[in-house]
């Protein structure tokens, strides 16, 4: 499977839904995991289901990869908010249990950095993931996050500051 959605518009245009799925499902799971989704595969599946439902009415059918990316970002953000609300309403809720995905991550090098990234605000985390892990351009980031390019720059800069502060705390 291809990864990270770096596909030219010409290629994109001729991909069927199944081809899109087979080429990009893994990269969308990976993006959801990077953003800290509790069930990255489920997020990616939902994003593809929405793409399928939207395919006939999409403004521009060539924009499928951007649409998927934005949907994964929004779904992950929404689920994290929902989980935080659920926790607020359940006083007896068990403490956070790391997913198998995160267990694997923590065994890897850089786990402290990944953990610190998970403590950032969702916007800062999104900005750093899209910038440094997906190597997206500012325009692509702005599209995925639903903000202006100026706001993207601000989130990256402040995200780095916040990440540095968290890493300092950890030392």
């Amino acid at each position: 499977m291809a990864d990270d959605g770096a596909v030219s518009p010409e290629v994109e245009q001729v991909l069927t839904y199944e081809q899109l799925f087979r080429c990009h499902f893994r990269s969308m799971v990976r993006l959801a995991a990077m953003l800290g989704a509790d069930d990255p595969e489920d997020v990616a599946q939902e994003a593809f289901v929405r793409l399928h439902g939207r395919a006939r009415t999409m403004r521009d059918p060539r924009a499928a990869i951007g649409y998927l990316r934005t949907t994964v970002v929004n779904l992950t953000r929404s689920r994290q908010r929902h989980l935080s609300v659920v926790r607020r309403h359940r006083e007896d809720a068990p403490p956070d249990v790391a997913s198998a995905e995160h267990d694997a991550v923590r065994r890897e090098a850089g786990r402290d950095l990944v953990a610190a990234l998970g403590r950032l605000s969702e916007r800062h985390r999104e900005a750093l993931v899209l910038r440094y892990w997906l190597d997206l351009s500012e325009a692509e980031m702005a599209d995925a996050m639903g903000v202006s390019r100026g706001t993207v720059k601000s989130h990256v800069s402040r995200g780095l500051d916040a990440l540095a502060a968290l890493m300092e705390e950890h030392r």
């Binding site: 499902f25 990976r30 090098a109 850089g110 786990r111």
Partner: peptide, 24 residues
Amino acid sequence: EGDLRTARSSFDDVHVSPDAWQQN
């Protein structure tokens, strides 16, 4: 920035179900 890019490899082995297409 360098540390961040290095940490990206932490997600190289992200789990994907072998029957993901069928699930979809």
